[in-house]
Design a protein around this nucleic acid. Structure first.
Lengths: 198, 198, 198, 198
DNA sequence: CATGAATGAGATTTCATTCAT
DNA sequence: GATGAATGAAATCTCATTCAT
């Protein structure tokens, strides 16, 4: 299928770009190097993405979609606590499984490229918004500004990933740490952290 | 004073660089623009800092020193909780008072320039290490890995700053939010968060 | 032919570089001027040669190849004396026909760029080595160190070129001087210069 | 004595410049490096020599004077052959004793700086002119153009130095080679090389 | 679609030179 | 005389982007 092979080139480009951007930074990565690593001609990159900036933004959206995608399980659970745990641990596991992609998100978010995002990518995840709202309404989560809570959870996620990526652990240890860090989050935001949890 | 006027050019360069790096990114900021904004000749920048990269690293070290400096109060308090609160709120207030410097730190830390730091800048603050150790020993802080705790506190600081910088508040509100976010941190790490605190 | 037109840009660059380097020196010749004279964009020069230094070395190898090429006649003659005369006069005629290239070789050889030559360009011409060896073995050439003899012939060549280039002469005179200077060489190295010669 | 210490700085500069120019080339040697190696301030170099170019030319004249100086012995001998031998071996010994200075002369002569020499430095040594003239008149030296002969002797000197500098030899061997190479020169230019010689 | 030679604006960096002290 | 911080013109080199094939 033609579109298949076309997609393959696009994918190669994205993969090469991801690896190199994280390794060398946005500036430190010439498009020519991305093309070479992707095994395509210099011009092909521009054929698909028009601009280096557009490639960077497209890569961000691609990765963000992947990350969000893995949080959309249907078995998120019934209670607010269970849902929060599910969202949190899903995201964290994704970060550990895709460390390069994860670092890219970090790099991107503290760069001037954020300004080039289409508006729908600028706002917070809808799923989190909803569950935090529900948690506050039902008195399970402390009555703090929703955006503050989501911001703190988000930062917590970055911190936990950072720690887990830089401190090697085997799988059971890793799993325990994932649960431990969620426990920390939950103590931080829940009214009665010791009930309903674990 | 001679050393004064000499330093003044270096300082002008650092100030201009800080402003521009945060605004335009490391790549987006030509050294020529920094020099122009600093009111010095192009070559003067290289006279003092040798390389653009070295300027970036020097700027980081300069700012880090400032930030650390403002946490070295002698009235940190006696208890572990009080010391933690002092360190946390001092850092957060510094971040709110120096938003540009704060953003610069963020940008720098998620860039490949971290690799160019001299080793003494790579490790954690000694003050935090000590107080967290003491807290764990005395049973006030939960028995988690010290580095994990410090990592999470650090991430919280970034998250809280982010929130406070993007959500304008008047001074009393701001102060309340500072205390609230420390409260969140303390719940996260303390064994009996409701005692001993506030 | 595609390779023809492709080569054409490279050739233009080499020609312009040769002329300018001899006229203005390596340092006195900006790459931008070379590009302008060659009728190509500034970047094209670096597309082909990577570095100014590499261009200089490439130019040397290009010229050296040309010079060596014109000494590879099949009619070099049978006797050692005839072969020496052929090699010597061929090189000298090449120097007179290509004065700019010749001056470039001189300039290059007494510059620090020699250190950047690949090893195969560092050693003496194989043809000279062989004929001198044979001459010594058969008692025609005096029993001196081979490398000394070749060094002296080489210096002699430079001197003769220098003289002929700075003292204009018509073709017959020139031809006579060529033979005269070879005669000097031969007296210098041969056991019985007056036999076997002329 | 004040003029003494002043001269010392000038001398330091010349020595540093000589070493560095030969090592790194004219272009490859920044004036700042010369000053540092000479142990003087950057500006001092310009105080004495005005310009980098002027420094280069001054250095040439300084060295040339030294070289010529050591050929002005009063015991040059009576016959043309003895005088030639004296001039030749003196110059060659000087080159071997001052290899760096010698290389500098080479480098200078095949550079565009020659054009900046005052006219009295452009012409040949008077001593050589005289003795060669006399040699031709008296039938001892072959009736060739004087300038050709001097040019060839000069080239031989360069060649012999090159060989002796790159092929280490102990003192007796060296002395023998010096005599051998003069022997080669003499065969080249004399009518009856085997008489009157050695 | 895909290529990659060619472009040229612009970035970093160098360094001869000046001048106030 | 001697200094060395400061200069800024100019050089080398990079690299996003185009376009003829």
């Amino acid at each position: 299928m033609i579109s298949q092979s076309t997609n393959s080139k696009q994918t190669e480009i994205l993969q090469a770009a991801l690896k190199l951007f994280v390794e060398l930074g946005f500036h430190g990565t010439p498009t020519s190097l991305i093309a070479k690593q992707a095994g395509v001609a210099n011009g092909t990159l521009f054929h698909y993405y028009g601009t280096k900036d557009q490639l960077i933004v497209a890569l961000y959206m691609h990765i963000k979609k992947q990350m969000t995608g893995c949080m959309c399980g249907t078995d998120a659970g019934d209670t607010v606590a269970e849902q929060c745990r599910f969202f949190y641990t899903s995201a964290l596991r994704w970060g550990l499984d895709n460390p390069t992609a994860f670092r890219f998100l970090q790099q991107f978010m503290s760069s001037p490229y954020t300004g080039m995002l289409p508006p729908e990518y600028a706002s917070e995840s809808h799923a989190w918004l909803q569950v935090v709202h529900e948690g506050i309404s039902s008195g399970i989560i402390r009555p703090l500004p929703v955006e503050l809570i989501i911001q703190m959870i988000s930062s917590h996620l970055f911190g936990a990933s950072e720690y887990l990526l830089t401190h090697p652990a085997d799988d059971p240890q890793k799993e325990e740490l994932i649960q431990t860090t969620f426990d920390m989050v939950w103590r931080m935001i829940a009214n009665n952290p010791t009930n309903n949890n674990q």
